[in-house]
Amino acid sequence: MSNIQEFDCRPDSQQGAESSLHWSYQNQKPRSPGQNPGVQIREHALLGHLTLRGGAIVLDEAVRDVLGTTLPSRPHAINQNDAGTHSIQWISPDEWLVIVPGGEEFSIEAQLRKALGDAHFSIVNVSGGQTVLTLSGEKALEVLMKSTSYDVHPLAFPVGKGVTTTFGKATAIIRRPAEDHWELVIRRSFADYIYRWLLDASAEYGVTTS
């Protein structure tokens, strides 16, 4: 066990917990354009996000034991457990982003610390700093194409890939965990900007939010 003081920064009660987009929701009325919207935007609020750093060989075994999935070693790969609830994404050669259901991040952090022991690594709980948006619908790809300079064509961006890149005038992690939807991991400070950018970009196709 590493000699680190841990504390659970998530309050016992979720009452009063506000997502990064709380302010945006108060200022943007929900969109519901009737039938057949081209784009659906949905937030997965208050998930657990952990930034895991260290050598791939050191981390791999612990990640396999704790998360039930291997550490992605190829650039831009995302591995998920069978249920799709826990994911781990390659961010850089020594950095990975772990996203788990809200409330589990503290125990997973503790389990990882225990499994890694005295190895050279770092785990930071960044749950409060970012949030996840899901983009689906047949025009979701068009919205992404307007928003980023990265090539999001399905041939260049297969399922199971995720990249950190520019989005509008901000940055975001664009992920494709499944065939039918895209995920954006956005920073808290950019959340309102990106949310409004998405509403604006998808207005012409019809958009629903939830």
Binding site: P75, H76, T165, T166
Partner: peptide, 18 residues
């Protein structure tokens, strides 16, 4: 704009990322 090959990401990215 240039496409610059990042040796760590192992792919070409837009110049504005660098």
């Amino acid at each position: 704009m240039f496409h610059i090959h990042c040796p760590y990401c192992d792919e070409y990215r837009e110049e504005e990322e660098f």
